[in-house]
């Protein structure tokens, strides 16, 4: 109901037309349109590309040294999928990307990130614009689904250690402060270093998993950073 109302009826503009306020100003006020979500995923693909070697390096310490390559493959496929199709609703952008990740990543991060995006996308429905508060709720649904799928909780040294604080921060600000979400995710990822892994291959290492930053929490922080950039109007290639 709320989203319908805020969707209003000014969504008749073509894909490229942008008569309203610039993205930076629109921030979250008029709601986020599909373009913001497309931009988010493109920026995420950029971030993943840039960080792929580092992700693999982190993963070689406590995992099976494939996180960078897997994420790169998945997000490249997402990028290609976005290029093929025309503009879509925020929910559709996320569900499609989630499905792509499930089928292309090849490691545990595929179903996990795929579930995050798909579940969030489903929660957004087919609204053309979504208010920030609604995105926060959708991300919460996505993060809850990830926790359920992996049977993990914050503190287990997983991607949840970045995602949960990020969504907490976003919710606390009523869906307006994406910078706070980004900071919370980055701090959460850094805070996985002294933790002992309780899920996945790293958990077999027991004590020896301590002292290494979790690769999944690190890539999750990249995803949230990309969201922050997308909402505030950053475009691909900017650095």
């Amino acid at each position: 109901m709320v989203s319908r109302e805020l969707t209003g009826d000014d969504g008749r503009d073509g894909p490229g037309a942008g008569p309203g306020p610039g993205p930076a100003e629109s921030g979250t006020e008029g709601g986020l349109d599909g373009e913001v979500f497309v931009r988010w995923l493109r920026l995420a693909a950029d971030e993943v590309e840039r960080a792929a070697d580092r992700l693999t390096e982190l993963d070689s310490a406590i995992g099976d040294a494939d996180h960078g390559g897997n994420m790169r493959r998945g997000f490249q496929a997402v990028r290609e999928g976005l290029a093929e199709d025309g503009p879509r609703s925020p929910g559709a952008v996320l569900t499609t990307a989630g499905r792509t990740l499930v089928s292309t990543v090849g490691g545990a991060s595929g179903p996990l990130y795929g579930t995050l995006l798909r579940r969030a996308g489903k929660a957004l429905g087919d609204a053309e614009r979504v208010p920030g508060a609604e995105l926060a709720r959708a991300l919460r649904a996505g993060v809850d689904a990830v926790a359920q799928l992996g049977g993990a909780a914050p503190g287990d040294k997983t991607m949840l250690d970045a995602l949960v604080p990020a969504v907490d921060a976003l919710e606390k600000s009523g869906g307006t402060d994406f910078g706070a979400a980004r900071t919370a995710a980055e701090e959460g990822a850094a805070a996985t270093e002294p933790l002992r892994a309780r899920k996945g291959r790293a958990s077999y290492l027991g004590e020896r998993s301590i002292g290494h930053r979790d690769p999944g929490a690190t890539s999750s922080a990249l995803l949230i950073a990309a969201l922050d950039r997308a909402v505030y109007g950053d475009t691909e290639g900017d650095d």
Binding site: V102, G107, A108, G110, P111, G114, A145, L149, G150
Partner: peptide
Amino acid sequence: LGSAVLTVKALLAE
């Protein structure tokens, strides 16, 4: 194990 479990679960949820 691992991604095999999660992938099948994700497919079932789909």
